[in-house]
């Protein structure tokens, strides 16, 4: 006997994401989901970003890692409220699901935040599949990775709204072909804004900050 089901496998996650989105919109907070491979420099980029945009923009951060609170400790020095999510001490989940974000958001006074940044678990595959109720997504790629990563992980690069090419201070020591990397990104996602920068030296940081603060301002004025 055949029984029709006709459901989305991730409909439970999507429902939680929808609830998060309504809650964030009601509080007027803009939520950015940052994703990348492990070691692309997300945490350093965030540290530098928070220092530059706070306190004018009131920020909070949710950090996802399989294990340890090292990233949260680093980010907390900025003065922003930070919540660490550990998916599991030994292995654990490869992404942050919407219900996990919903629970983590309880730790914040959302009404008094303009921007909530979610530093997702380092992984270019799984986080792309899970809506968490965010307003925008950014993928960070470092120049120590292959130029063709966007073509290898098209789902991630399609889903995101902007891309950061980090660690440009290392370019003199690498064979990284910047034009090829941008070509691969635009092949998968034409017209996606790309920010070449070095979070370490802060060179090229301004265009990225402008993009981010513009998004937050537009969200605020849309209220």
């Amino acid at each position: 006997m055949e029984v029709d089901v006709a459901r989305k496998i991730l409909d439970t996650n999507d429902a939680h994401a929808g609830q998060n989105r309504e809650r964030f919109a009601a509080a007027g907070v803009f939520v950015l989901n940052m994703m990348s491979s492990p070691g692309s420099g997300k945490t350093t980029l965030l540290e530098k970003t928070l220092v530059r945009i706070m306190p004018k923009i009131r920020c909070g951060v949710i950090v996802g890692d399989i294990c340890t609170t090292n990233d949260a400790d680093r980010l907390a020095r900025s003065g922003a409220p930070v919540t660490q999510i550990n998916t599991d001490a030994f292995g654990g989940d490869c992404h942050l699901a919407a219900h996990v974000i919903g629970k983590a958001a309880d730790a914040f006074d959302l009404e008094n935040l303009d921007l909530l940044i979610v530093e997702n678990i380092g992984n270019l595959v799984c986080p792309a599949e899970f809506d968490i109720g965010e307003n925008a997504r950014t993928v960070v790629l470092s120049v120590t990775e292959g130029e063709d990563k966007p073509a290898k992980y098209p789902h991630m690069f399609r889903k995101c709204d902007s891309a950061v090419l980090n660690k440009t201070d290392l370019l003199p020591y690498l064979d990284f072909d910047m034009a090829a990397a941008e070509g691969f990104i635009h092949q998968v996602h034409p017209d996606m804004p790309i920010f070449q920068l070095s979070a370490k030296t802060e060179e090229g940081l301004s265009p990225w900050l402008n993009w981010l603060t513009t998004q937050v301002a537009e969200n605020r004025s849309a209220r």
Partner: peptide, 11 residues
């Protein structure tokens, strides 16, 4: 797509 279409149960 990431859909579950149907299941078939033994009679």
């Amino acid at each position: 797509e990431l859909d579950i279409i149907s299941i078939e149960i033994a009679d």
